[in-house]
């Protein structure tokens, strides 16, 4: 039972492995999405305080979770790539960023569309909303920096530094924003979910979060495959691929 896991750290073998894994994750994402939406719209009861508007939670909370989780994962792989000079981990890191930014945008958007009927405004300078906005800026900064650098190895390493600096700063930023928010408590915004949230709501939310997770894996794998092809276009295995002798 000795599987050589390091084999898959080579871009070429990862390319084929990822290609075989993608269909399974697509199926998982679609099934989870259907179950999640079904529970969200047909099983979960109407919230007695917020009526039907709360059903935005089934995309809002998973999107917000994924946006934060993906940033940490991105910084982790970028850091590994910087520390051990493994090309594949840096490629994964840059493949994660667009999906992460998309979820951040989605969390902000749905937050606004939930806030309007509940709080009466599209935007409040709430600690969580503000931190999410700053997270969006961090993703944009990471992607623009990598896009501005032509040499891929320099882009990987520079991106890793800015991602790691961002990760160190996120807690500091979060607590300063939180503190700032309590000081400037304007119109009372108390959207703390009651602890006894209906189980169907919680289940729906968790399943939707899993679906978002599977979706992110699909996107990241696909994008990593393309980055591998782009960077290794002059290697022997890619030219074999061209001649159609691939597995």
């Amino acid at each position: 039972m000795t599987i050589n896991w390091f084999k898959y750290a080579s871009p070429a073998s990862f390319y084929f492995l990822a290609g075989r894994m993608i269909p399974f994750f697509i199926i998982a994402a679609v099934i989870l999405l259907i179950i999640g939406l079904y529970i969200g719209f047909f099983v979960a009861p109407t919230d007695f305080q917020q009526g039907e508007a709360y059903r935005i939670i089934f995309i809002h909370v998973p999107a917000a979770w994924m946006s934060m989780f993906l940033y940490v994962v991105m910084a982790f792989w970028a850091g590994i790539g910087l520390a051990f000079n493994t090309r594949l981990s840096s490629m994964v890191a840059s493949a994660i960023a667009p999906t992460g930014a998309m979820f951040t945008f989605l969390a902000l958007w749905t937050g606004a569309w939930w806030g309007k009927p509940m709080w009466g405004t599209w935007w409040v300078w709430d600690a969580r909303l503000t931190s999410e906005l700053i997270l969006f800026f961090l993703y944009i900064g990471f992607m623009s920096l990598q896009a501005a650098i032509d040499d891929p190895r320099r882009a990987d390493k520079a991106g890793a530094i800015i991602a790691l600096v961002g990760v160190v700063n996120i807690p500091i930023i979060y607590f300063s924003v939180q503190w700032w928010n309590t000081l400037h408590q304007g119109a009372s915004v108390s959207l703390v979910q009651s602890p006894k949230m209906a189980t169907a709501m919680l289940t729906g939310m968790l399943i939707m979060a899993l679906a978002a997770w599977m979706y992110s894996i699909v996107m990241v794998l696909m994008r990593t495959r393309m980055i591998i092809l782009e960077r290794e276009r002059h290697t022997a295995w890619v030219s074999e691929l061209k001649e159609g002798v691939s597995k």
């Binding site: 009526g51 039907e52 508007a53 059903r55 935005i56 749905t110 939930w114 309007k116 009927p117």
Partner: peptide, 15 residues
């Protein structure tokens, strides 16, 4: 959506 259709579907559409 109990009168909140605009907001709920607005969010889901953009998603």
């Amino acid at each position: 959506m109990g009168g909140y259709g605009f907001y709920v579907w607005g969010s889901y559409l953009v998603a």
